[in-house]
Design a protein around this nucleic acid. Structure first.
Length: 426
DNA sequence: TGGGAGTTT
DNA sequence: AAACTCC
């Protein structure tokens, strides 16, 4: 029987922040989203004071006084994530990174009776190497490993490691007590449709007829039934596949009606999108540009336009992408609205190498295409070495004031020499 | 009152 | 294009 482990970092962003501020240990720490907009991570202590997703400006003063609030520090979290993953590879070669704070581990052929001890050791070593606390869920499918992971976090007796045997009586009881909406991939609307069929608990879904589920829903939900029975049927290759679309979007941090400001933002997002394309080795056949007003401001006129532009030839050239994005914006732009957010998506991506060039109708010569690829490569390399935005196309800078709001930023302790933590010994 | 990616309707 | 799902 092949066991899959899910390692999930506890309160990841809040835990990262605490590693370098030991004086915050056992204090309520909450991390804010981009733009300091809402709460996206909480230490256990903070969970009693503030809801997940709570808008920052709605946090009651009493809670605010107790909370340690910080802006998101992705340079720190990304580096800490890498450290955790590196340590996980000491415990199995089969590590599948699922998100910044979660990895699936394959333990094929590992003796079952030693697995829990092995994972206890894993928790200890990750904590020692990185300062990050993790929980481990173990079972024979990813879905059950997720369930096991939740139990490992919730029930102290497991001490952070929970193994669920798919056919045990304990698993049956757990699934009978588990609302179907607590499962991975089942949320509000799907949950409602399931409850109309009389399926309210995870156990009821496990016992449902897969064919019937497939007919009413889709193959994804059918797989979920098998996953609950402990049969691993989530295609892991999906996780490694190149992205099919790439989005870059951001709030302005405040409302704006200035066309120059919006144009600069769109150009910057388009340039960033082109960079992401090149990093993945893809070209886009189309791009989409969208604008949004603030939908929470019911007193203001609303306008949420989006436009897809087919590119004449698939491209990842910054100039081509930026040009197309600007043309799209031209069509979308309406004076008089107060815009909150703008974004650019790279669509219909294909691998650059496997792309069949349209030999009959190419306005660009091969030499020209090669020149542009070289210029882009140099630009990417400089930006990688010297920091994002070192080299860019004219006009993508914009006015400095649409930058992200991050007033409570902690230091990039692990990725910047000038922000290293300093320890004094007396 | 987040951003990024994906799927479904 | 919008709605929904995940993290």
């Amino acid at each position: 029987m092949n066991i899959i482990g899910l390692v999930d970092c506890n309160n990841f962003y809040a835990s990262c922040e605490r590693v370098f501020r030991p004086d915050w240990e056992s204090w309520p720490v909450a991390v804010l989203s981009n733009n300091d907009g809402c709460v996206i991570a909480r230490s256990n202590e903070a969970k009693e004071l503030v809801e997940m997703g709570a808008p920052t400006f709605k946090i009651p003063p009493a809670a605010r006084r107790e909370l340690i609030l910080v802006s998101s520090n992705y340079a720190l979290y990304g580096d800490m994530s890498r450290r955790v993953t590196t340590t996980l590879r000491e415990f199995t070669p089969d590590v599948e990174i699922y998100s910044i704070d979660e990895s699936f581990l394959g333990f094929d052929g590992f003796p079952l009776d030693q697995l829990e001890d092995h994972c206890q050791r894993l928790r200890y070593v990750v904590r020692r190497n990185t300062g990050i606390p993790v929980s481990v869920g173990l079972s024979t499918s990813r879905t059950l490993a997720k369930v096991a992971n939740k139990l490992a976090k919730k029930i102290a007796a497991y001490e952070g490691v929970c193994l669920l045997q798919p056919d045990s009586e304990i698993t049956r009881q757990i699934l009978e007590d588990l609302p179907v909406t607590d499962l991975w991939g089942v949320s509000g609307r799907l949950g409602q449709r399931l409850s109309q069929m009389g399926i309210v608990t995870a156990w009821q879904l496990r016992e449902a007829d897969p064919k019937r589920i497939r007919a009413r829903f889709s193959v994804v939900q059918e797989r979920l039934v098998y996953e609950l029975r402990g049969i691993d049927c989530i295609d892991t290759d999906d996780l490694a596949e190149p992205k099919k679309n790439i989005m870059t979007s951001r709030s302005f941090g405040r409302l704006t009606s200035d066309p120059h400001e919006v144009r600069a933002a769109i150009r910057a997002h388009a340039a960033r999108g082109a960079e992401k394309l090149r990093k993945q080795g893809s070209v886009a056949r189309a791009i989409q540009v969208h604008l949004k007003t603030n939908k929470h401001r019911e007193d203001l006129a609303q306008y949420h336009p989006a436009l897809v532009v087919q590119l004449p030839h698939p491209s990842n050239d910054t100039r081509v992408i930026v040009g197309a994005a600007q043309a799209a914006l031209q069509c979308l732009w309406r004076d008089g609205y107060r815009y909150m957010k703008a974004g650019v998506m790279m669509l219909d991506l294909v691998d650059r190498e496997t792309l069949q060039h349209d030999i009959f109708d190419s306005p660009e010569s091969d030499a020209e295409r090669e020149r542009s690829a070289k210029a882009s490569a140099v630009m990417d390399e400089l930006n990688r070495k010297m920091g994002r935005g070192t080299v860019r196309l004219g006009g993508t800078k914009g006015k400095a004031d649409w930058k992200l709001k991050a007033e409570l930023l902690t230091k990039r302790y692990t990725t910047r020499w000038d922000e290293l933590p300093i320890v004094s010994l007396k």
